[in-house]
Design a protein around this nucleic acid. Structure first.
Length: 769
DNA sequence: GAGTTTGAAACT
DNA sequence: CAGTTTCAAACTC
């Protein structure tokens, strides 16, 4: 049956970007079972990791950007720019074009209501049995395509969507079917002449593939051709990175400070690129220009329109990012033609290139920005349920002047992902009937909401503000931040997710921001651990953070550890705190101020040493004078690393052979062991105590009153009075101390005899009665 | 818990 | 860039 290439897959590529949260390189990615080997994980250079992606051997293909952290301790996945159930594919001209392009045929039943032309409805069918079939084309080549399937599932406990990548390359060459659990999402082209363009995304729903074309079948004829169930890998989830705007929308946990330089594809010389230079930087405004063409700028409201000014929060989005190797440097290129209308410009691509890193590292090793997009022509109405009881409409421009509306509804039980169009800058966001003007299109941003959690999921990727060097990257949100969001008052309580096998949990816990990895951030790690002991993970799954106590800085200076770590204050003891969502603007200014002073302000303080030396090292070095670098005042010591030649410390004792350091280390080790022993003993004791009745029994098993019960408070008081009187008497008689002592003890003996006698009498009377 | 010490950050 | 001040954490009592 010929597949009809319509709807989402209609030559309009989607790209799902999986961004490794912790700088996964190829090798580490390959270790992730269930993630297609063709999936490349590209670092977003955050404040914590600037390793070049030198291992990225093949072009960028399939990525997933995850968002929220709820799935079994791993974040729920947001497929960027996609609602749950969307299919994301690179275009023909994307980098993986050398890979054979299989067809994907989605079949579902029953087809939804009669569609209207070019409008897609994403809805959740009640209990539709659906089958998703993937079919490889017959045309063969030596290269078997590696298909990555990203499954957006709905967590049964939380209703939160979750994505699971599945490597399908083993099943290529045969038709595969996905059996739905009936909780999928239909994408229904309404009004189209195409009979059935329903994509039912089951709990195992979404399928994406690298270099695959999505086609929707004109009829569900493939339903009956299931070959086998796709293997599921519930333990494998993509990364935890969420990108949110720094200066627009909710502030991030961590600022990704890296600047982006842009290159435009040179139309006169195919394959070559011309730098797009930053012509000026004023406040939150960055103007970019291109030497040979008219100046281009980007702003939230006018994407890449010449002559306008790039505003803070500008989004640079496009579909089908490519990895381009130029000068041995991997770079990302965005075909602008697909999403941007640059009048008068001959730009075909914008390329985001990370700036040269320090220390002789390869320039442009990092992809600072992630490009994604949904072809405008495919945008439509998305209905995703209630969103905080309020329907949210997002109107996005289509090609030409036509507008379409995206309706975002997310129920309290489940926050659904909402489609971000390729041009979120040109999206109208409206709630409760209030719609912004089409001429003042707003970014989808969480500025007006109480928390990021109220954002339409998927609407979180926006470019950050700008640094002194130019465009800035994205802000990344770690799980800890997401836990903050979960606790934001206006957000529905984050559901508790059942623990899942966490094969990659240890790795995925390493969120780029505020990572547990001590090599990542001295602030984040060293100050959050005590004596190197790993902090206990919060019930939310987030790493606990030490609360700050700032009083004067409003937590908007680097004095504040929360701020320095790119985190919001949360459960802190600070006064007049502005490091929160309510002071977003202030905070953004503060961030910019810090970056103005020091572009590396939010970079990790602790980096790796020289190549071949895995030791960590304080990038800046300490300046200790009195502590000998053997107290936690010293950032090196605090980070459990030795001082280096970067340090300017005086009287340093924090070096390898230092006897003082060794002694301290031994003491620290011993203390740690002691603490552990005490902890173990306490827990053991408490468990034992818990088995002891709180009040001992008054009587024995035979009903006999036990002796100690006769020593009542009155008896004890009387005894003490007797002893006291005896002592006074002995003193009055001026007896030697030894004799006085003896007299008191003898008196105590008499008291005891009296008690025993009384007890016996009581027992006798009890037995007589 | 209050006061002191310390060194990074901020400021000049 | 150096010196000074501010700040909050680390430390001491």
């Amino acid at each position: 049956m010929p597949a009809q290439r319509t709807g989402i897959g209609n030559n309009e590529a989607f790209t799902v970007v999986t961004v490794a949260s912790d700088g996964l390189n190829t090798s580490s990615v390959n270790s992730l079972e269930g993630i297609a080997s063709s999936s490349k994980f590209v670092d977003i250079p955050t404040a914590v990791d600037y390793e070049p992606i030198e291992n990225l051997e093949t072009p960028l293909d399939t990525f997933v950007i995850s968002s929220t952290p709820e799935i079994g301790g791993v974040e729920t996945v947001l497929v960027e720019g996609q609602p749950p159930g969307s299919v994301v594919l690179p275009q023909n001209d994307s980098v993986a074009s050398n890979v054979q392009q299989p067809e994907i045929i989605y079949v579902s039943q029953p087809p939804a209501a009669k569609p209207t032309p070019e409008v897609f409805v994403v809805s959740q069918p009640s209990a539709t049995k659906a089958v998703t079939t993937i079919k490889r084309p017959l045309s063969g080549s030596g290269n078997s395509p590696v298909v990555t399937k990203v499954i957006i599932t709905k967590n049964p406990n939380t209703s939160q969507p979750q994505a699971m990548p599945i490597q399908l390359n083993q099943v290529l060459g045969q038709t595969m079917s996905l059996s739905s659990m009936g909780q999928g999402i239909n994408i229904i082209p309404q009004g189209s002449q195409t009979p059935t363009k329903t994509i039912t995304i089951s709990p195992q729903g979404i399928v994406s593939a690298s270099s695959m074309k999505l086609t929707t079948m004109s009829s569900p004829g493939k339903v009956g051709i299931p070959v086998r169930q796709l293997p599921m890998s519930p333990t494998k989830t993509p990364t935890k990175i969420t990108m949110i705007p720094v200066s627009v929308g909710k502030s991030p946990q961590r600022i990704a400070p890296a600047a982006i330089s842009m290159l435009a594809k040179n139309p006169s010389e195919p394959g070559s690129y011309t730098p797009v230079t930053i012509s000026s930087t004023t406040g939150n405004t960055v103007t970019v220009s291109r030497p040979t063409v008219n100046m281009i700028t980007m702003s939230p409201s006018k994407v890449l329109k010449q002559g306008t000014v790039l505003q803070s929060g500008q989004t640079l989005l496009g579909s089908n990012p490519q990895i381009i190797t130029q000068g041995g440097v991997k770079q990302m290129a965005i075909p602008m033609s697909s999403v941007h209308s640059v009048q008068g410009s001959k730009f075909q691509y914008l390329r985001l290139v990370a700036p040269s890193s320090q220390g002789g590292k390869t320039a442009g090793g990092q992809l600072t920005s992630v490009v994604h997009g949904i072809p405008v022509s495919n945008s439509g109405t998305v209905s995703l349920g209630q969103h905080g009881g309020q329907q949210m409409k997002i109107t996005l421009p289509l090609q030409g002047s036509q507008l379409k509306t995206v309706v975002s509804q997310a129920g309290s039980a489940g926050v659904h992902r909402i489609l971000l169009p390729a041009q979120p800058n040109q999206v109208r966001l409206s709630t409760g009937g209030t719609t912004t003007s089409a001429t003042t299109l707003q970014q989808i941003r969480p500025a007006s909401s109480a928390s990021l959690g109220q954002l339409p999921p998927g609407a979180t990727i926006l470019s950050a503000g700008n640094s002194a060097q130019g465009l800035q990257g994205f802000a990344l949100v770690p799980a800890s931040y997401l836990s903050q969001m979960q606790q934001a008052p206006a957000k529905p309580v984050a559901p508790v997710l059942p623990p899942e096998p966490q094969v990659q949990q240890s790795r995925q816990d390493y969120i780029a921001i505020a990572s547990n990895d001590p090599s990542i951030s001295a602030n984040a790690m060293a100050r959050n651990s005590v004596n190197g002991l790993s902090p206990v993970i919060e019930p939310t799954g987030a790493r606990p953070r030490k609360p700050c106590n700032c009083t004067k800085s409003q937590c908007l200076k680097l004095y504040c550890d929360c701020f320095a770590n790119g985190e919001f204050c949360h459960n802190c003891n600070c006064n007049n705190c502005a490091n929160n969502l309510e002071h977003e603007e202030e905070r953004s200014k503060a961030i910019k101020s810090c970056l103005d002073r020091n572009p590396m302000a939010f970079h990790p303080k602790i980096g790796k040493g020289r190549e071949g030396n895995g030791d960590r090292r304080h990038n800046k070095g300490c300046n200790c004078k009195r502590s000998g670098c053997l107290k936690n005042y010293c950032e090196c010591y605090e980070a459990k690393i030795m001082c280096s030649n970067h340090c300017k410390c005086v009287g340093c004792k924090n070096f390898e052979e230092s006897p003082e350091r060794k002694t301290l280390m031994h003491l620290a080790d011993a203390a740690e062991v002691r603490v552990q022993q005490q902890t173990a003993a306490k827990s053991k004791l408490s468990s034992q105590i818990s088995g002891i009745p709180s009040r001992p029994p008054v009587s024995s098993a035979t009903g006999e009153r036990l002796p100690y019960t006769f020593i009542t408070a009155e008896v004890a008081e009387a005894t003490c009075a007797c002893l006291l009187a005896q002592a006074e008497e002995a003193e009055r008689l001026k007896m030697p101390p030894v004799v006085q002592e003896r007299m008191v003890i003898e008196e105590f003996g008499r008291c005891l005899l009296q008690i025993i006698d009384s007890a016996n009498k009581t027992k006798d009377s009890d037995s007589n009665s």
